[in-house]
Write a protein that binds this DNA or RNA. Structure first.
Length: 155
DNA sequence: GCCAACGTTGGC
DNA sequence: GCCAACGTTGGC
């Protein structure tokens, strides 16, 4: 039995929201063009849980939960010249960018805002609240993840 | 619009 | 390898 890990994955709701995921049921989490975020995806296990975070919106925060159901999938847009995610330096024999597939679990009744999170946790406990943090995918400490889940259930 | 906090690129 | 210039994310 592989250990379950917890993650946080950001998306701008204008581009792809928790409601889009609910309608679609599952989705390819594509367009990641940051090596650290990509490496986090590579270290995910099937069955891991991920908090869905709405970024670049008012207010930003955690809005739902999803599960990792597939990994090591080639991101097709790196080879699509018409995509903003096209990477001319990626090689089909050795693709540079991959992605995971996530499945909708739930949308929380209330948003757990970044403001609330930053009032509860330090930048060391929760890298999400670190000022200027630009990572779109990051791990969440297991104990903190469980605290967040129990808080979100009480909404 | 501003700016913090990076990541990337390219000259040397 | 160093570093300046530039680009991006994303909160505020």
């Amino acid at each position: 039995m592989t250990e379950i890990n917890y993650w946080l994955m950001k998306s701008e709701p204008d581009v792809y929201s928790i409601k889009d995921l609910r309608n679609e049921v599952n989705t390819l989490w594509d367009g990641i063009r940051n090596y650290q975020a990509r490496n986090f995806m590579r270290s995910m296990n099937i069955g891991d849980k991920a908090f869905f975070y709405h970024s670049n919106t008012k207010p930003p925060g955690i809005v739902g939960l999803m599960e990792i159901i597939e990994k090591n999938l080639i991101d097709p847009f790196q080879f699509d010249e018409n995509s903003k995610y096209f990477d001319p330096n990626s090689n089909k024999n050795n693709p540079r960018w991959d992605c995971v597939r996530t499945k909708y679990i739930c949308e929380f009744k209330n948003i757990l805002t970044l403001k609330e999170l930053s009032e509860t946790y330090t930048a060391e406990e929760l890298t999400l609240v670190r000022k200027g943090n630009r990572l779109s995918i990051m791990p969440i400490n297991k104990n903190i993840a469980k605290e967040l889940l129990s808080k979100l259930e009480k909404f």
